[in-house]
Design a protein around this nucleic acid. Structure first.
Lengths: 138, 138
DNA sequence: TTACATGCAAACTGTTTGCAAATAT
DNA sequence: ATATTTGCAAACAGTTTGCATGTAA
């Protein structure tokens, strides 16, 4: 077992998840490199392409378990597919309409001002911002 | 035919939509009072409760036609239901997690600052902001 | 009278689930 | 040894679509 996988196994164990072959493989794909935005379908295809044997149902279940464990965040999104983000810190997104892909915006860059009073008895859980970008038309 | 319905018929005609009985009924429910946030299911139930004869498929089709005509906006949203907003002007939303409902925030109240440079060749189509509120815990 | 809209049911897509076989501890 | 996880297929929810019937212009 590679060093990275040992680390990943530890991380899963800490999250209360048994480091099974499938979960290790998916976790390595997800968290091995930089921040990623995936759908269940796209991650499954990637796994299949890498000859890792994982069923689509397991990908769904795993993504939801990772989300419940706080390893992933679901991105608020209009449309038919659910996207998961490996960056769980407070940050926002560009959505490139042309390609249908998401790009992170660091929270340091962005500031929201002038929030009106919240309804009584409520507090902010989090703020989702999606800036939809289209191609500049000539 | 009531005055309001004549006005509604005109509005539909201007949008290139024939003012049929069903479309008039739905348009009146949607645009008759203040701003609203509906799902296909909720609007259909409302119509049924008001003894207006509309099929769920027609509600879906009508909502999509209204959206295409610019009479409605779809709200970016994580989850299984699609929400439509009768307020098509630039504005944002509170999402009350407790009740699953949306509340408008006027754009005048809110300001986004420090937007980093856009990827080249792109421009902002629009900005979706959802502020998720939870009940203050005691 | 002709093109468009509706309703129904069937199709479709993304997602979840029940259960038997496989695996981690 | 025991509880958990997996894969598959079937179930499911929300949404769209084909087609015969109804309706607006």
């Amino acid at each position: 077992m590679m060093l990275q996988e040992q680390h990943m196994a530890e991380r899963l164990r800490l999250a209360g998840l048994r480091p099974t072959r499938q979960r290790l493989a998916l976790a390595t794909m997800l968290f091995g490199a930089g921040d990623r935005h995936v759908s269940a379908e796209s991650l499954h295809q990637e796994a299949v392409a890498a000859r890792m044997d994982v069923s689509l149902a397991t990908v769904y279940n795993t993504l939801n378990q990772f989300k419940a464990a706080g390893l992933l965040r679901e991105v608020a999104f209009e449309g038919d597919r659910t996207f998961f983000d490996t960056n769980t810190s407070n940050h926002f997104h560009y959505f490139l309409e042309e390609t249908g892909s998401l790009v992170d915006i660091g929270i340091d860059d962005l500031e929201v001002k002038g929030l009106p009073d919240l309804p009584p008895g409520t507090e902010i859980d989090r703020i989702d911002i999606i800036i939809r970008l289209r191609k500049t038309r000539a």
